[in-house]
């Protein structure tokens, strides 16, 4: 069976479970909204400067919410030792990893959509000026977060300190990606697309390509040990 198709089936299974239990969706969505709310006390939500820091605010929400999502990703395979059953099955380790990444990607995009509406509502920022570009930025950055989240979720799944280790390992690695996403989102919120945007867009793309290939190449190493 085609490895990509296998990955999609793993994702489909995970999403079916997730939509049934809504464990990580509820947690991540609520967490993101709470952070948005808390930030309204950090600065004046009515001032025009909100648009200039909106990108940073949003991507912090997404990154923190993301940690809750991919903490669950591989942990979902632990009860009944499903991970062993999957690894012994014809699913390749890279398909499994990619499947987990696709799951986190979809879930995180949902959280992002919700957060954007809440953000626009609370802070009166018109984020829909460049809907396609904003979606492209979100999609590229979210994929990067998702693939690293899957790789490190797999690494830490058997550790006692799983929930603690994952953020410590993943946020430093995500930083270039978050910086690019924040810059781009700020530009889009302020309605000024500059030549810098292209550069940051390229950073996103390179990040996605490099880490996706590393994750796929190292999947066996990470999962089978």
């Amino acid at each position: 069976m085609n490895p990509l198709l296998q990955a999609l089936w793993v994702a489909r299974k995970d999403l079916a479970i997730e939509f049934r239990t809504k464990e990580s969706l509820n947690a991540a969505g609520a967490f993101a909204v709470v952070i948005l709310l808390l930030f309204s006390f950090v600065f004046d939500p009515a001032s025009p400067e909100v648009a200039t820091i909106g990108g940073g605010l949003l991507w912090l929400c997404f990154a923190f919410g993301g940690a809750l999502i991919f903490n669950r990703g591989f942990a979902r395979e632990l009860p009944n030792e499903c991970l062993d059953a999957l690894l012994a099955s014809p699913v390749s380790a890279s398909s499994l990893l990619a499947g987990k990444a696709i799951t986190s990607f979809v879930l995180l995009l949902i959280v992002e959509a919700v957060s954007l509406f809440v953000f626009g509502f609370f802070y009166d920022v018109r984020w829909w000026l460049h809907p396609l570009k904003l979606f492209a930025v979100c999609a590229l950055a979210t994929w990067g977060i998702a693939i690293l989240g899957a790789a490190f979720g797999a690494m830490t799944v058997n550790l006692k300190l799983r929930e603690l280790m994952l953020p410590v390992l993943i946020y430093p690695l995500l930083l270039p990606l978050l910086m690019a996403a924040i810059e781009l989102t700020n530009n889009l919120l302020m309605n000024q697309v500059t030549s810098d945007s292209l550069l940051w867009g390229r950073v996103l793309l390179v990040f996605d390509i490099v880490y996706t290939s590393l994750a796929v190449a190292l999947a066996e190493t990470i999962l089978v040990n």
């Binding site: 296998q6 089936w9 793993v10 079916a16 030792e81 062993d84 099955s89 014809p90 699913v91």
Partner: peptide, 24 residues
Amino acid sequence: GHGIGVYEDLSARENLRFFATVAG
């Protein structure tokens, strides 16, 4: 293995269908 290797939140049929499909 020691664990039964099936998902708690899926039905028996869904579990079998998943493992059958990924097995090709």
